[in-house]
Every structure is written in C-alpha cells, then in structure tokens.
Amino acid sequence: MSIRLFSPIVLFLLLVFLIGPFLIIIAASLSAGDTLAFPPQGLSLRWVTKVFAVESFRDSFAMSMFLAVFGTLAALLLGIPAAYALSRYRLPAAEAVRTIVSLPIIVPGIIVGLALLRYLVVPFGFNITVALFFAHAALVLPYAVRVVSASLDNLRSDIEEAAVLLGSSRFGAFFRVVMPNIRGGVLAAFILGFVTSFNQVPVSLFLSGPGVRTLPIDMLGYMETTYDPSIAALSALLAFLSIGIVFLAERFLGFSRYV
C-alpha cells in the first residue's frame, strides 16, 4: 500500500531537513581549506583547534558560562523559596506571584535587554555585566519556579511535620527532609536554566559592550565580517556541548521526568 512507502520517505526527508544541516556544519568545520565550503576541501582539525585560540571567543565563552552558571544559581536561589511558598502555603495573591514570575517566558528577550539598557544601564551607569546577569537570572527564573514547584507538589508535606515533631526546626526540616527529596527536580531546573541561558541571544543583544559579550553574540559579530569555518567549528562544538549535557541529564537523572 502507498502508506507503507509513504512513511519511510517522509521520515527520511524530515531527518535530512532537520538534522542534515547540522551534519553539514560538522563536515564544514573539519575542512582543511581557508573558506567556508561544503563539501570540505580536505579534512583537518585546524579550525576546531583555532577557535580555542581566539581570545575573543575564549572571553565570550567564559562570559556565557558565567551567566549560565551563576544566573541559574541566582534564579534557583530566588525560585526555590518562591516555589515552596506557592506549593506549601495558601499564599495571598498566589496567582499574581505566579504570573509575575512566569512573565519572562512570554515576553520576547530582546525587549528585556533593551529595557534594561535604557532604564538601568544608561541612566544609572549600571554595570553592563551586572545588567546582563540580572537579565539572565530573570530569564531563567520561570523555569526554576515551575520545575521545582512540580517536584514539591509531588512530595507530601507531612514528612516535614514529622521532622518538626521529632525536634527539627522548620528551616532544618527543609534541608534535612525536603531538599534531599527534590534534588532531582532542582538539578533538572539547573540544567534547563543553564542550556536556556547559554543559548540565549536576544536578551544579550543590547547588553553588549567592549569586553562584555556572550558567545552567541560574539559569533554573530564574527559572522558578519569573516567567512571562514571558525563559526562552523564553534557551532558544532556548542551543539555537542548542549546535546551532551542533555544526554547525560537524561541518562543519570531521567531529566524528561521533571520537565
């Protein structure tokens, strides 16, 4: 029947369309030639090693890493108590809190970056890096609250009461009894936040300056002027990094359970 032929063809074309470009990038990055081309002219790792040598890439990579790690940590530091309050208490204005905290997912990032530039950085001479840090933390906050909330909702609250009755303080009960049981959710939230922040572009567009640039922005700038396989190599490396993190997360954490 035509159905039986239909499926494999569709799937094949689909995979070619979705994954093919990525494979092309990998191939192009292994080119020995001087310009970006496919098929690559000879195979070499020179471009892959080169990206590690470019100082601007190293700096912007460090910046992206810093933002991803510490921005997510900040989001978790704010988000875990908020998730706890939303899950365990009958919070007055719970809906308002939930909405405010979720807004960064709905509002396009470029707007946030622009707004912060205009009202924080320019008028108050706010440090751009700090503004970027705030922006990334705000961006990740909704994910932190959502994922940790889900974990807390799945955990009964009577074990906290049991801990208190056995002599623990409320605070102690949270660390002794709640945290160990939501560890998976917190970790999943961290990974999700990290990947989101690292790949984020629009938020960081306006909040760039001399020496202050995230890696994707740096790459965009480089692309405009130079036409060599560096970006391809960098893209491929970053893609493997992202995929690797999510793969490990799934393998050792069962990541998909939490999101």
């Binding site: 074990i159 009461e161 049991a162 208190v164 009755l165 056995l166 009894v177």
Partner: peptide, 28 residues
C-alpha cells in the same frame, strides 16, 4: 511543635523516603 515532647504517628506514616529504616528511627 519541635519542642513539645509530643509524638505523632501519621495516618500515612510520613517516613522519610530518602533515609533507611535505621536513619528514620534515629532522626529525632
């Protein structure tokens, strides 16, 4: 509640899922 010398056996038992039986009993 944590200073009252009152014990409570919950209807759901409320054992700490991440601890062993020994550690559960040892908790307090």
């Amino acid at each position: 509640a944590n200073k009252r010398a009152v014990g409570l056996v919950f209807q759901s038992y409320a054992l700490f899922p991440h601890l062993t039986v020994y550690e559960n009993v040892a908790f307090g």
